[in-house]
Amino acid sequence: MNRSEYMAALRRALSVLPEEERANALRYYEEYFDDAGPENEEKVISDLGTPEKVAAQILADYREVAAVPQPDGTAPQPKKRRWHGINPWLLLVLVLLAIPVGLPLVGVLIGLIATLFGVLLSIVLVVLAFVVVVPLCLLAAGVVLCGISFVLWGMPASAVTTLGCGLALFALGILVSLLMIKLCTLFLPPLFRGLVALIRWPFDKIRGRTRKNGGEAK
């Protein structure tokens, strides 16, 4: 290890110190090397010991001095715990005063959220009904028409026409069912995720941890 490597290691080992403290310590040891002279570089390094050892001594002393801020030598006193921010009694009074105003506001807020939720739920139900009911109706109509055609055997032409229509409707019902299943697999997961993200959004906001971007649906 040469001088510059030694100083770099010392700088790293002192990285927890405030900038000024670290600069002072590094300057002291730079000067120490300068004053010892380049011919004594190796001796200084071996005399000083590892950079980590040197740093440990500085850090230990720094903590000690930091705990004793009074330069006049009075005994170190543990810092008194103080309430930062609002006095708790004042806070209580504020809360009590805020209740008449706050309760209706909270009520309105809950109402709004409930309404929003209701609307979303009804939209989902309508879509679901549509998706389920339309194919089922088509299938049912097909079956019913086929059934009617058996009653109409007295008039073969009508019976065959009705049967044909029934079968066609039944087939259409199967097709629409397949289409709906396909549409569901395509659109339901993203819709669901979006919904979840929408519901989570206010909670994330409350936590205040929502990133400026990407806080919503991922």
Partner: peptide
């Protein structure tokens, strides 16, 4: 005087490590 000299002077009479004095001076 300066750090290196102080260390040399103290070391004439006491067996102290070279790295002992900076924390003392700082304190």
């Amino acid at each position: 005087t300066y750090g290196y000299r102080i260390t040399q002077d103290v070391q004439k009479v006491l067996e102290i490590s070279e790295s002992t004095l900076y924390p003392v001076l700082r304190r």
